[in-house]
Design a binder for these strands. Structure first.
Lengths: 258, 258
DNA sequence: TGGTATCTTAGGTCAGACCGTTAGACCATC
DNA sequence: GATGGTCTAACGGTCTGACCTAAGATACCA
């Protein structure tokens, strides 16, 4: 060792490269384990997980840790926790609401421009209309008619109008029978609702136009005419977007990052 | 009181009507409060929240409750928690990863059909290409070229090919300069990656076709030709979807619920 | 039979202790 | 003057054990 040549370094540095390592927390370990089992279908929906104190015995972890794991799963929409006797953690499948929540957080957190929201809707919704025209059932049509009626009836109340509007758009997405698109549209509609809530551009004229457009789109869906549905929906959301942006122009939800 | 008429009930029942009330948990209250403040921009990104023990003093809650609240925010991607001295909860904005996680949970939990994933991509990605053609920068073009080169170079490794493929699609979304679409496409691409990971239909022929299609789309984006970009991307993702479904046919990710 | 009091089982909250990790200051070594 | 050891203080992570509260189950009584 000591007799190495003088010009060489005594030891070779950086011979191995390591990346930062993650040390999982106990609660994460348990949460991951339970999550995998749930998603693998090992526990059907509605199954009651063991009581916390039972999990403590089984896992040899403390109740604090067990509870944190359950809380993680609850936030992720994988279990619903009920109190009282015969309560506990019941297995649930994440639904559109959990995606909607997460997309809303992204929208609010990233200060997404209203223009970006409307653009995204222009991308998604015509396609929803196309699928709806293909797959709609009578139940779907009922929902569409009902929501559009609510829009026409919403005299005065802006909130009422906007909510009915959201309902109609979500109904279109539902009629597409694509759970993912439905989840995305739910989130998007709610976010647009929230963003346009304070606008006064929703006047009687806009409402009439909206009802008319919705009716025409609904008819295309009823007639199972995908091309007409996609065309009309495209025009509708594009016109709506232009109208909103014309009014807003400088009053975006927030300043865009880039 | 005691002299009330004999035929009348001692007390009037159901005199008032109340709807089922929700009693929020302490940790939810604190989590909501902090979430609102974070999303309102009250705490800039990177801000350190007070230490847990300090929050205990301020809120008069127990440390258990405070920690559960912080855990909720952590799962929602609003804070990052670091251990050790000068550690604590640091404010974060939810990014595309948090949406990707949530979409993955929806996909796995709802047993979403691969067909639905591909459909959704068909809805979103052509629109991304259109925006990319309008807004792309030189940096964007660089990313596209690099990713496509990686696809061509990925000899052998299926994982390598798929990852490079994801990178290219995400690069298109990034070039659209719409953060929301980018987030959605990231989530979607990863999910499709995961779903097609085990397929052997990705042969040399498919790869050549993919590279060719990507090149042609990239050129349209480079030439700032939105119509060509949307048309070519539409054809590409549709063809890819058909190819995948032809191979899969009966082997969906899982059995659809309905 | 129907209401009501009580029991029991579950989660929710709390206080307090101790452990593990980390930044920073300081010191020893080669 | 780099390198590495050591100590300390400030954090989050975990555990224990207790008590409170919600609510289904049950026994009891009118």
């Amino acid at each position: 060792m000591a007799g190495a040549r003088a010009n060489e370094p005594r030891t070779i540095r950086s011979a191995v490269q390591l990346t930062p390592m993650e040390v999982p927390k106990a609660s994460d370990v348990l949460a991951n384990e339970l999550r995998e089992r749930i998603l693998n279908g090992e526990f059907p929906e509605g199954t009651a997980l063991p009581p916390e104190r039972e999990l403590v015995i089984q896992t040899q972890m403390s109740r604090t840790t067990v509870r944190e794991a359950l809380r993680i799963l609850e936030v992720q929409g994988l279990v619903r926790i009920k109190t009282g006797r015969a309560g506990g953690a019941f297995v649930q499948r994440p639904d559109r609401d959990s995606v909607a929540t997460s997309v809303s957080l992204l929208i609010r957190g990233q200060q997404i421009r209203l223009a970006a929201l409307l653009e995204t809707r222009e991308a998604i919704e015509p396609f929803c209309a196309r699928l709806a025209a293909r797959h709609r059932t009578d139940t779907d049509l009922g929902r569409l008619d009902q929501a559009n009626k609510a829009i026409a009836d919403a005299e005065g109340g802006l909130a009422q109008f906007l909510q009915a509007n959201v309902d109609w758009h979500v109904a279109v997405a539902t009629a597409s029978h694509n759970e993912l698109l439905t989840g995305l549209m739910t989130a998007l509609s709610q976010a647009i609702y929230a963003a346009t809530e304070n606008e006064d551009f929703v006047n009687a004229e806009v409402r009439r136009t909206t009802v008319r457009a919705h009716k025409s789109i609904t008819e295309a869906i009823r007639a199972q005419d995908p091309d007409a549905a996609v065309r009309r929906m495209g025009r509708h959301v594009h016109a709506y977007a232009e109208a909103v942006l014309k009014v807003e122009e400088r009053t975006e939800i927030a300043v865009p990052d880039a």
